[in-house]
């Protein structure tokens, strides 16, 4: 019996390994080794287009940490991440509750409509929003004019263009968040609400004392995953501020900084150092999520 059990275990072990090893090898080749190489290159002065390289220790790190553009890019990225994540989570939860309560007819249809932005590619989405925010012909300024307000130059000002970029992010993300929250809300036991009704709880009390605590793990998951996604923000900021009618990538994000160091200035050492900083931020967030999950 014991031998049989061992045989069974061996068979299981072989099966699990035969399935896992190819994936682990692939993961090592396309993820783990490049990360290690990036870490290694970050200590060298290395041009993307020249074979020679020289060891310079932490010089790339000290350069980027002193570089005003890097700090600006980091601050811009944190701004976008904070507002996009917070607002897309809040709106996502709000929409999920409406869908869950089926307050209007054809909720399945509206659910699908709200999910459309998630599947639309980021470039056309951003171009569409860019047209809406255009100073001369955009609908947003038209509406402002109709209600007696002056047009705003949304795109050409670093402190203003961040808001259209946040809006694009929320618009893209909230449909996904809604779906996840919807699943979470479905799993909340009805009995809890029935008991609350008997006790005379108000809607806001039910939300605060039943719904939110029950969906806490999902909220945490969405928040951290969204943050990891937004910390890598690039496309919407790049497209929104590119082109001859725009102000020329005035709103630089961390990924754009890495792209520019690598592809424009060919400095792989600095691009790698900046990538490692990004990696550390993502690591900290993941650790934070695991820590909170344990609690």
């Amino acid at each position: 019996m014991n031998i049989l059990k061992n045989k069974q275990q061996r068979t299981d072990f072989i099966f699990v390994m035969s399935v896992l090893i190819p994936i682990m090898v692939l993961f090592t080749i396309i993820r783990f080794i490049p990360i290690l190489q990036t870490f290694g290159v970050s200590f060298f002065k290395k041009s993307m287009i020249r074979p020679e390289r020289s060891f310079i220790g932490f010089e790339n790190y000290t350069y980027i940490l002193k570089d005003k553009e890097f700090i600006r890019s980091l601050m811009n990225t944190l701004f976008i991440s904070f507002f996009s994540v917070t607002l897309s989570v809040v709106f996502g939860l709000f929409l999920a509750m409406q869908v869950n309560n089926a307050i209007i007819k054809g909720m399945k249809f509206w659910q699908a409509v709200l999910f459309i932005p998630v599947i639309v590619s980021m470039v056309p989405s951003t171009l569409m929003w860019k047209m809406l925010f255009d100073y001369n012909f955009g609908v947003v300024n038209y509406v402002l004019n109709v209600i007696g307000l002056r047009s705003i130059d949304w795109i050409n000002n670093e402190s203003i263009v961040r808001w259209p970029i946040v809006i694009v992010g929320i618009w893209k993300e909230m449909g996904y968040n809604m779906m996840i929250f919807f699943v979470g809300l479905k799993a909340v036991p009805h009995e809890l609400y029935e008991s609350a009704d008997i006790d005379g709880a108000t809607k806001s009390q039910k939300l605060w004392y039943i719904t939110l605590p029950q969906i806490k793990p999902i909220t945490l998951f969405i928040t951290v995953m969204s943050f990891i996604k937004f910390i890598k923000v690039f496309t919407q900021a790049f497209v929104m501020t590119s082109g001859s009618q725009s102000s020329g990538n005035i709103f630089k994000t961390l990924v754009y900084y890495i792209y520019q160091q690598g592809f424009t200035f060919h400095s792989m050492g600095r691009a790698s150092a900046a990538s490692m900083v990004l990696l550390i931020i993502v690591f900290v967030l993941t650790w934070f999520q695991m820590r909170l999950s344990k609690d």
């Binding site: 002056r150 047009s151 050409n156 102000s247 020329g248 990538n249 005035i250």
Partner: peptide
């Protein structure tokens, strides 16, 4: 009427691709 430029007298390059600027 609001003072907004409807037609510029000279189109200055104030942005776009940095190399072009």
């Amino acid at each position: 009427a609001t003072g907004k430029i409807e037609r510029s007298g000279f189109s200055m390059r104030l942005g776009g691709n940095p190399s072009g600027t």
